[in-house]
Design a protein around this nucleic acid. Structure first.
Length: 509
RNA sequence: GCCGCGUUGGUCAAGGGGUUAAGACGCCUCCCUUUCACGGAGGAAUCACGGGUUCGAAUCCCGUACGCGGUACCA
């Protein structure tokens, strides 16, 4: 009987940058759907017009594209169950709200924001920490339960502002099976009469998820753990609407926590601790503030994805590096953790480094090209690839390729003279002059030949080769870093190597 | 406050009645390399606490503590 095609959705609100946790939710959705041969849909939950942010939806789509987690159906490409923006689905919700009212599962409430506020003040004064519009309170408010049918009809007729609230039953047990947590039970007396349809005619999240998941034939609903407390409302709604047998299976994902202290990881933590929290750079159109993203920080999308999937899931094999295809094969909800995981930026960097190591030079070179262009450097594709090949093993971010390899493209701007000078001797100076003069005799200007002639001459002069290598490195690179010196010299070529030696020699004297 | 969900090294975590309690990140020591990095070798948890159940518990049960989440006409 369970032959329905698997359909999952990611349903973000277009309110700003896409958080790490959001991407992980997408990822789990995606992996599950692809593994089951199902479909992944993107639905934009823009029912709160006051929080709508220009450009956020396009930004989310771009993030998914970068991560390689593209939806099968979305607001742009459409699909059989569109539209995929809740604001465009507005007319669809009212009828369901009314259906609920007619069946007695919901009611109209005419309380103004001021009246609600007053009620809360009174309750708080009585020692009620978080006043709820519940079974007892609703009896004291203005709604279709306390008003006569005639009064209600008249108010509605006049177009009085009103909302539709769910009529939570008294003392009933609502339970459902969460794919990650097992059976979860709530008592309806502890849940309040949540608003289903707002005064502006827009549904709240509670009504919208249920209606849309039903209409879009969603079979499995993954979302963050912060939604667990409102799950009973959704379960009840599925039942009240008469759709119980079509209710998706729920999975409430553990939260991603801040590295220090406790609590959900927030954008602020990233700013404070110096790491990104958003997938890509996000520029707030109102304030103009720019928040750094993983992409711009130099992460490879595969590494980002791999790092995220390991936060709350692992396949038990001890392996940690997985391609998206492997993840699709290996992912299983049974192995998703219940507890939240603290985000560890060091580990994230390690994943990125692992991926940089296995990424081919051509792709890395392509990523370096914009940097070179910006600096006005032109180099052949081959040369750039050669350089990335030489320096990539010491890069944690793709942006570091330049930092570790700049001296291949330009003369070092500073030379670490102080590291050489104290031990510098006229004999060493003479060594370099003679050695460089001998380059012409070299059959081929390559690393092996260079190293050999270097050692021969050093030995002949009674100087330990090791004492000459560091000065040579500093001549070429400007400091104590970089790949093997003779390899650098080979890459630089004869002319440039001689030029750098001649430039540095006088500085050391 | 109330409701819900959690709790294995600093972090991610495997293990689900009998193990020397995997592995990875980070940290420390050493090797390689007269740079850095990569790569090797090694070091450091007794499983939140307290009770049970059992010959035997990190593993099962019950409490407690702690943490987190929710408690909006936000999602």
């Amino acid at each position: 009987m369970e032959q329905k095609k698997v359909r999952v959705r990611f349903a973000p609100s277009p309110t700003g940058g896409l958080h790490l946790g959001g991407v992980r939710t997408v990822l789990f959705n995606y992996l599950f759907a692809k593994q089951q041969g199902g479909e992944f849909v993107l639905r934009i939950e823009d029912t709160d017009q006051t929080r709508f942010v220009e450009g956020a939806e396009e930004y989310i789509q771009e993030c998914l594209r970068w991560c390689g987690l593209e939806p099968d159906e979305d607001p742009v490409k459409g699909g059989p169950y569109g539209p995929y923006r809740q604001s465009e689905r507005k007319p669809m919700y009212r009828q369901y709200a009314e259906q609920l009212v007619n069946a007695g599962y919901a009611y109209y409430a005419f309380d103004s924001p001021e009246e609600l506020e007053a009620m809360r003040e009174v309750e708080k004064a009585k020692g009620n920490h978080a006043p709820q519009y519940n079974q007892t309170i609703r009896a004291t408010m203005r709604n279709s339960l306390t008003l006569s049918a005639a009064e209600t009809a008249e108010l509605l007729e006049k177009g009085a502002p009103h909302v539709v609230r769910i009529n939570m039953p008294v003392n009933e047990e609502v339970s459902f099976t969460d794919m990650i947590r097992g059976t979860v039970t709530f008592n309806t007396s502890t849940v309040d009469d949540k608003v289903l349809l707002k005064a502006d005619g827009m549904p709240t999240y509670h009504l919208a998820v249920v209606v849309d998941d039903y209409l879009m034939k969603i079979t499995h609903a993954f979302r963050g753990e912060e939604w667990l407390p409102s799950a009973p409302i959704h379960v009840l709604l599925w039942k009240y609407l008469g759709w119980e047998k079509d209710m998706p299976q729920w999975a409430h994902l553990p939260l991603i926590l801040k590295p220090d202290g406790n609590g959900k990881l927030s954008k602020r933590d990233g700013d404070r601790l110096g790491f990104p929290v958003y997938a890509m750079n996000w520029k707030d159109p109102k304030t103009g503030d720019l928040t750094k993203g993983f992409r711009e920080m130099g992460f490879l999308p595969e590494a980002f994805i791999n790092m995220l999937v390991m936060l709350g899931w692992n396949d038990g094999s001890g392996e940690e590096i997985f391609s998206l295809d492997e993840l699709i094969k290996r992912f299983s909800i049974d192995r998703v953790h219940k507890g939240g995981a603290k985000f560890d930026f060091d580990k994230a960097k390690w994943f990125n480094q692992q991926y940089i190591q296995k990424t081919d030079n051509a792709r890395l070179a392509a990523l370096l090209q914009p940097v070179l262009q910006e600096k006005g450097i032109t180099a052949t594709e081959d040369f750039v690839m050669k350089v990335t090949g030489l320096v990539k093993e010491r890069c944690q971010f793709v942006n570091e390729i330049w930092d570790h390899g700049f001296f291949f493209f330009q003369k070092p701007t500073t030379i670490d003279v102080d590291s050489v000078k104290p031990k510098w001797t006229p004999e060493k100076q003479q060594f370099f002059e003679e050695w460089a003069a001998g380059f012409a005799q070299l059959p081929d200007f390559n690393a092996v030949a260079l190293e050999e002639s270097f050692k021969q001459l050093a030995t002949a002069k009674g100087i330990k080769p090791g004492e000459l290598q560091m000065p040579f490195r500093i001549m070429l690179c400007g400091g104590k870093f970089g790949p093997q010196v003779f390899v650098i010299a080979e890459a630089l070529g004869k002319e440039e190597t001689i030029a750098r030696i001649q430039h540095a020699l006088p500085l050391f004297a």
